[in-house]
């Protein structure tokens, strides 16, 4: 562990400090948005968005190799695909709820396959693993500014509209009778999640974004008394998991993203098992 602390202050390896700052900034998004994803049960939607992102990255890299202008970056491709996927799923969810599941799974698979096809046709070897599992040590200062900006936006929105978001998540119908624009709240949430996924996947990768949006919040849900408490607890858990995972991965020379997710997953499973055992004991007595 001492090695990790030394690396943090070592000017020769600034990327370690960036990774730490990134983990802290990401924890807010994982905690707040993850809680909303969990209570609204839209983890499938978030999963589909994050996997569709690979299609956008692949397309952007492919176009760049064919002489597209410089602004056609993987980040832009990812953003366009994420927002399109979010809008498409929302449309189906609002207009034909019974098809939502099918569309989510279709986009999930199509998005990934598109990415693989484009990457295969892009000259030079590109390792899809780095997009799937991310590399937290490759975070740039620009990524950090974007993450910080999104943190501020999400915090402002959640503080200002907390009661409305809570009501629309708990009982959409009742909230609507009180004049809360529930469709707009839902669309705003889905779009913010889409943007967050694009920024977060640079850290932990496409596959693991969805784990970090569900595991800390799911664990927090076991002991939080309300949605606000769940957001705070999930943020703290994400912070512990990502900073802890980073330190452990540095120490044992393991991939950081995977270690962070394993840590989060282990704690979640331990909580779930503890809950089940406690419930059984309660039922017996």
């Amino acid at each position: 562990m001492g090695g990790f602390l030394q690396a943090l202050v070592n000017p020769a390896v600034p990327f370690v400090r960036n990774a730490l700052i990134g983990s802290v900034l990401a924890a807010f998004l994982f905690g707040i948005l993850g809680s909303l994803v969990t209570v609204r049960r839209i983890a499938g939607l978030a999963g589909a968005i994050s996997h569709t992102v690979l299609g956008g990255i692949g397309l952007a890299l492919f176009l760049a190799s064919r002489g597209a202008p410089k602004w056609v970056s993987p980040m832009l491709g990812a953003l366009v695909f994420a927002i399109l996927a979010a809008l498409l799923i929302s449309l189906v969810s609002l207009k034909a709820k019974q098809r939502e599941d099918t569309v989510i799974n279709a986009l999930w698979a199509i998005g990934m396959s598109l990415g693989v096809v484009f990457l295969a046709k892009t000259p030079g070897y590109i390792d899809p693993m780095s997009y799937l599992f991310g590399n937290i040590l490759l975070v740039t200062s620009q990524d950090l500014y974007l993450l910080a900006a999104l943190d501020v936006i999400v915090l402002l929105l959640v503080v200002r509209y907390y009661r409305h978001i809570e009501a629309a998540s708990f009982d959409e119908e009742f909230a609507a009778t009180k004049g809360v624009p529930v469709t707009a709240v839902y669309l705003a949430l889905v779009l913010v999640i889409a943007v967050a996924i694009v920024l977060l996947q640079t850290f932990v990768g496409i596959v693991m974004v969805i784990a970090m949006l569900t595991l800390p919040a799911g664990t927090a849900g076991y002991f939080s008394r309300n949605l606000a408490g769940m957001m705070v607890n999930a943020t703290l858990l994400s912070l512990v998991f990502s900073v802890g995972g980073l330190a452990v991965s540095w120490h044992f020379d393991l991939p950081a993203g995977a270690v962070i997710v394993l840590l989060s997953g282990a704690v979640f499973i331990a909580f779930s098992a503890g809950r089940m055992l406690a419930g059984r004991r309660l039922a017996r007595s």
Partner: peptide, 28 residues
């Protein structure tokens, strides 16, 4: 309005006071 509300989510962390507090909402 008191909806039928049969399908509410038991995993949603919320206290009685907060459920009732939703009645204070008016638009945004």
């Amino acid at each position: 309005y008191v909806p039928q509300h049969t399908g509410f989510d038991a995993a949603f962390p919320i206290r009685v006071e907060e459920v009732v507090g939703m009645g204070r909402l008016s638009g945004l």
